[in-house]
């Protein structure tokens, strides 16, 4: 893998991690969704670059799916949902943004240490990619853990899934079927969660998931 290919792939994967941090920083739902759209766009670019670098045309399809579904359709749909639900309020984060960012930095360091050490024999590009992908996955989980709102849980989950796609495309020889099925499962998850959101709202007049806990005698 020559210099330019590697550097650009590195740049795009790093950009994805940066967008994850940007997700953590957002405290309004609509801007969170916008940043997620940007997150997905960067993913699409990274995947497209991998397609070019690995000379694997089917990865262009993956990139297209990422762009179409995750960067356009789902964010637009989510924006419409929060408009209909009328929730433009602040996100109720459990932990403050500052400590969350710090924890995120720690997670990125952790995934670098683990991945670079574990995959010593692997291809250099794949190594870096995997390290970044693991960071994105961990940051996605972090978002899910530190937010209360159901919509931000969905965003966290989808950014986590973006990390998985990044890892999958970084490895050579990933069959297209797997990627398509992953993409569709995300779409279905989105639909299910969307329906679920309206149901929660109907029942409890809010989509703060702690409202659910009251009804199952949650004890914290």
């Amino acid at each position: 893998m020559t210099g330019l290919f590697f550097d650009v792939a590195h740049l795009l994967a790093g950009g994805l991690v940066l967008m994850s941090f940007a997700l953590i920083y957002q405290d309004r739902l609509s801007s969170l969704i916008n940043v997620f759209a940007a997150h997905a766009t960067v993913l699409a670019l990274a995947v497209a670059w991998q397609a070019y670098a690995q000379n694997a045309p089917h990865l262009y399809v993956t990139a297209f799916i990422a762009l179409g579904f995750k960067a356009i359709i789902i964010p637009v749909a989510l924006q419409r949902i929060i408009k209909r639900l009328g929730i433009h309020r602040e996100i109720e984060t459990v932990v403050g943004v500052g400590p969350t960012m710090l924890a995120g930095i720690g997670l990125v360091a952790l995934s670098m240490v683990v991945m670079l050490r574990v995959t010593e024999e692997a291809d250099r590009l794949a190594r870096e990619d995997l390290a970044f992908a693991l960071s994105v996955v961990l940051l996605g989980l972090l978002i899910m853990v530190t937010r209360r709102n159901a919509v931000s849980l969905i965003i966290g989950f989808m950014s986590l899934e973006n990390g998985l796609v990044l890892a999958a495309t970084g490895a050579k020889g990933m069959p297209l079927v797997v990627e398509i099925s992953v993409a569709f499962s995300v779409l279905i998850a989105f639909i299910v969660i969307g329906v679920f959101l309206f149901r929660i709202r109907e029942r409890f007049e809010t989509i703060d998931v702690s409202a659910l806990d009251r009804f199952r005698e949650g004890r914290e």
Binding site: V209, G218, E220
Partner: peptide
């Protein structure tokens, strides 16, 4: 009887 968020954590 934990909350969803605690399970995720």
């Amino acid at each position: 009887f934990l909350t969803i968020r605690v399970y995720l954590s």
